[in-house]
């Protein structure tokens, strides 16, 4: 390389660096007018193990069980930045059904999120009371009772209302039913009643990211990992025995299950390097 060429190369580097600097000065790192994406990854676990249908786990009551159904509604998502700015996902786009057997459903992708360093995520476990009473035209996507994708049986047709969390499985400790199966069935819902007050199992959960930040930037799609520990459905405020309560549906006891499961959601970690698709 001769000196002329190396001079040009150095000049180019300097100019590039300078331009890069000016660019940084003109455009702030965070501009809430620019939009990015955030992905919430709901990772179902059982204690310290990954949740898998058919595998055996032990609950706090010492009972063995396996699951063959586990799904829940996540709705009304709100995000908050470290400087207190709040982003509320538009109502009509804020309903998701997370199903254990459907990996895609476990990734909730939120687009059009203003840039920011987010450190708090709030959501409803279930479906709010207003949506539970809305005209059928407003019940679309995962709320559409006629949509096979909705996941069979997340709606009580005889007692109009969505089932919020559904877990079913087998436990050797449960007495056999008429079909000889030792099934347990937990269908938890209840939005408070239409004309008369009744149980309200709508739960709101806020996850604090601690010192972590989900850095939403244009072109970036940070992924927030949330672990959901099914064992906590049966422990916490009330220790629940599957043998004693093999079936919990629309009943006063279901309140205890909901008070337990609100604590099964926990923030785990965030990936900030992901590009948005």
């Amino acid at each position: 390389m001769n000196s002329k060429h190396s001079f040009i190369a150095i000049l180019l580097l300097v100019v590039t660096a300078f331009l890069g600097c000016t660019k940084a000065q003109v455009e702030p790192e965070i501009d809430s007018n620019r939009k990015g994406t955030i992905v919430l990854n709901f990772d179902n676990i059982a204690g310290t193990r990954d949740l898998k249908f058919g595998e055996n786990y032990t609950n706090a009551a010492g009972e063995q069980f396996s699951l063959d159904m586990f799904q829940y509604y996540i709705s009304n998502i709100k995000l908050k930045t470290e400087d207190g700015r709040e982003y509320i996902v538009p109502q009509d786009e804020s309903y998701f059904l997370v199903k254990e057997q459907d990996v895609k459903s476990q990734l909730i992708t939120l687009n059009n999120v203003p840039e920011g360093n987010y450190n708090s995520i709030t959501f409803t476990i279930g479906v709010d009371s207003l949506r539970n009473t809305m005209d059928v035209s407003k019940r679309i996507g995962v709320l559409d009772v006629g949509n096979a994708e909705m996941g069979k049986g997340m709606y009580w047709s005889w007692n109009s209302g969505y089932i919020f969390v559904k877990a079913e499985g087998i436990s050797p400790q449960v007495a056999p039913g008429p079909d000889g199966q030792r099934k347990f069935r937990y269908h938890i819902g209840g939005f408070g009643g239409y004309s008369s007050r009744t149980i309200n199992n709508i739960k709101t959960k806020t996850l604090d990211l601690g010192r972590d930040r989900a850095k939403v930037r244009q072109g970036k799609a940070p992924e927030v990992h949330i672990v959901v520990d099914v064992l906590k459905m049966f422990s916490g405020t009330t220790a629940i025995s599957l043998a004693t309560y093999p079936t919990v549906m629309f009943s006063p006891f279901s309140v205890n299950v909901a008070n337990n499961y609100v604590n099964m959601f926990e923030y785990h970690h965030v990936h900030n390097e992901n590009e948005s698709k």
Partner: peptide, 10 residues
Amino acid sequence: GVFDLDLFAI
């Protein structure tokens, strides 16, 4: 148990 005629048939 059902509070909307539209939802009845389900």
